[in-house]
Amino acid sequence: MNPVATPFFFYLLSTLAILGGVMVIVRRNAVHSAIALIVTLLSVAGLYLMLYAPFVAGVQIIVYAGGIMVLFLFVIMLVNIDRSMKERAFNKQWWIAIAAAVALGALFVSVFVKSKGLFPERGLPLAEESNTQQIGLYLYGNYMFAFEIASLLLLVAIIGAVVMAKKRI
């Protein structure tokens, strides 16, 4: 089956993602930034779907949009927001930072211009097995050790977060 109107959806989703990214860094209000970030995350999930990576898209929606962003909103509501609304949103070295970021962007552009033809135009043919199944085989096969370390990392993060946020242990 041919995908429907692929270039249209690509441009729509990537515009949404970049607009969301811009809003994240320019909005004074942290809740608005969080909503913009949610837009970006969902658009990136759409881009994953266009790259035939449905499982990663699903993980992105569940973990990022449903989990991490709720945590962010929760913390934004816990910390006082009224004061930071009246203060400067950007710090003093902002022009140096912009210059550095523009330099980084120029580096990326030069890489893309130089590397024309380096990346193959067409993707691999899609495998018969479902994407989820293949990822499962990789996760519990080739990357078993990395998987275990990731679980350990999560355990450490849970304990760390509890220790940090608790008033008295």
């Binding site: 809740v31 909503i35 949610i38 449905p54 499982f55 898209a57 699903g58 993980v59 929606i61 569940i62 949009a65 449903g66 989990g67 962003m69 709720v70 909103l73 929760f74 934004i76 509501m77 479902s130 994407n131 989820t132």
Partner: peptide, 23 residues
């Protein structure tokens, strides 16, 4: 082919709306 993952993920987006409404 990620049906149940999609259902859980999208239904978990509802909490964002609730948090936004409350705030």
């Amino acid at each position: 082919n990620i049906g149940i993952l999609f259902m859980l993920g999208v239904s978990s987006l509802g909490v964002l709306g609730i948090v936004m409404a409350g705030w």
